[in-house]
């Protein structure tokens, strides 16, 4: 099996190993690190994580598929995750989602043809005091409005 994970992946893992009494405990950090390299978790990467930790590939998938942050399919360069939970909905998140769908020409869960944008609805982000909120890749954007969102997206095109 040809290796797909980088030297950096193994260096990061080496640093973390002494922090845990078992190797399996490294599974979530390893999946985060692998996803950082590809933007998602290709099957080969998950297989290699399994080999590194010493568990069956099915065990890796069983865990990876439980958590929403692990992308099991490729996502666009910009991954928009708009919170539509209670506090954000009370502050207009539904309208924001609709606005984005129209603007990008895709529905939630889809990626634009040019692979630039993926749109997703997200559960509570813990930014309810500054609702509506969303994540753009790893970053939070809060106190959103259609205007602010437009400015943000137009800057990315």
């Amino acid at each position: 099996m040809a290796k797909v994970l980088s030297e950096k992946f193994y260096a990061e893992m080496k640093k973390l190993e002494p922090r845990y009494p078992t190797k399996v405990a490294l599974l979530l950090p390893a999946l985060h690190q692998a996803q950082e390299e590809f933007g998602w978790l290709p099957p080969e990467a998950m297989d290699e994580v399994g080999v590194y930790i010493g568990i069956h590939p099915a065990q890796v998938r069983e865990v990876a598929s439980f958590y929403t942050m692990y992308n099991l399919k490729p996502v666009g360069k910009y991954h928009l995750k708009i919170c539509t939970n209670v506090a954000c909905c009370l502050r207009g998140a539904d309208e924001l989602v609709e606005h984005c769908e129209k603007k990008l020409g895709i529905r939630c869960g889809e990626t634009t043809l040019d692979k630039k944008f993926t749109l997703a609805e997200e559960e509570c982000l813990g930014a309810c005091g500054t609702a509506p909120a969303m994540m753009l890749n790893d970053d939070y954007h809060e106190n959103l409005s259609a205007l602010k969102l437009d400015q943000l997206l137009d800057g990315l095109r």
Partner: peptide, 29 residues
């Protein structure tokens, strides 16, 4: 005393303490 930051990966249930511990151990929450 050694302190390590361990990131979850998007699962409300991991706020439940025993689900959190399973998640910390590298399992489903």
């Amino acid at each position: 005393f050694d302190l390590t930051v361990h990131r979850g990966a998007g699962a409300y249930i991991c706020g439940e303490e025993t689900a959190l511990l399973n998640s910390l151990e590298g399992k489903r929450g």
